[in-house]
């Protein structure tokens, strides 16, 4: 299950791997993970939730399309008892409202919104509203979306793209083995050095 290719990063790639990237998602800030489907953005969000719950923190996932697979989440190390899962049935409007409600309830370390295929446009001024709520509650509010939605309100924008795919099987492939993602920070108000074009993180996700 556990895989990392941090031991041999190519020149210019960040050697800190996942830890260095996850540390950029700060409490009390609004962050965004941007990337097309199958890019590894959902896995990055799951890694954030898993590590936080493993440390004993409570996390909330607002799932716009009811898409979370609890089995995968548990394999990723997510303590399901520490997860508040809010399923919005494909209604992005309800999903934004749910995040807003949760962001005003201090005590959750991460409040994640996975828009999945339901991503449209963010309601007007919603980014600023969420940013203020995050500041007050101290939670890290993270939005996973195929494209950048929150404008200037997001203190951190991480872009994810897939680099390669691996398959499993003896003679012919019988299962997807995993994929390798490249993550780049497009914006970081807390640490602008993270957003330099030559800095990237190479992450491997396994099925």
């Amino acid at each position: 299950m556990v895989a990392s290719i941090e031991s041999s990063p190519p020149p210019g790639w960040d050697g800190e791997g996942l830890d260095g990237l996850l540390a950029a998602f700060l409490p009390g800030r609004l962050s965004e993970i941007v990337g097309p489907r199958s890019s590894g953005g959902g896995s990055l969000l799951l890694a954030l939730l898993s590590r936080t719950s493993a440390r004993g923190g409570l996390v909330a996932l607002v799932d716009a399309t009811d898409a979370l697979d609890p089995l995968t989440a548990e394999r990723a190390g997510l303590d399901l008892r520490a997860l508040l899962w809010v399923r919005c049935g494909g209604r992005p409007g309800s999903a934004w409202s749910a995040v807003d409600l949760l962001a005003r309830c201090p005590g959750f370390e991460i409040i994640a919104l996975d828009l999945g295929a339901a991503a449209g446009t963010a309601p007007a001024a919603w980014g600023t509203r969420l940013q203020r709520a995050a500041e007050e509650s101290g939670a890290a509010v993270i939005v996973r979306t195929p494209r950048h939605l929150l404008g200037g309100a997001a203190a951190l924008v991480v872009s994810v793209r897939r680099v390669r795919t691996s398959w499993m099987g003896m003679d012919a492939p019988t299962r997807l083995g995993g994929l390798v993602s490249e993550a780049r920070v497009l914006r970081s108000r807390a640490d602008p050095r993270l957003a330099t074009p030559e800095r990237a993180w190479l992450l491997e996700w396994r099925t």
């Binding site: 299950m1 556990v2 895989a3 990392s4 996942l18 830890d19 489907r37 590894g40 959902g42 896995s43 969000l45 799951l46 890694a47 954030l48 898993s50 590590r51 493993a54 440390r55 004993g56 399309t65 009811d66 898409a67 979370l68 697979d69 995968t72 989440a73 394999r75 990723a76 190390g77 303590d79 008892r81 520490a82 999945g116 295929a117 997807l176 995993g178 994929l179 992450l203 491997e204 996700w205 396994r206 099925t207």
Partner: peptide, 27 residues
């Protein structure tokens, strides 16, 4: 759930967590 540190992972053990490929289920 009641507070308790027995299930918590500390320090370097956290580094081994979270490398699973996420799956978006169609429901």
């Amino acid at each position: 759930s009641p507070r308790g540190g027995e299930g918590r992972v500390r320090g370097s053990e956290v580094r081994g967590i979270g490398f699973a490929l996420a799956m978006h289920r169609m429901r």
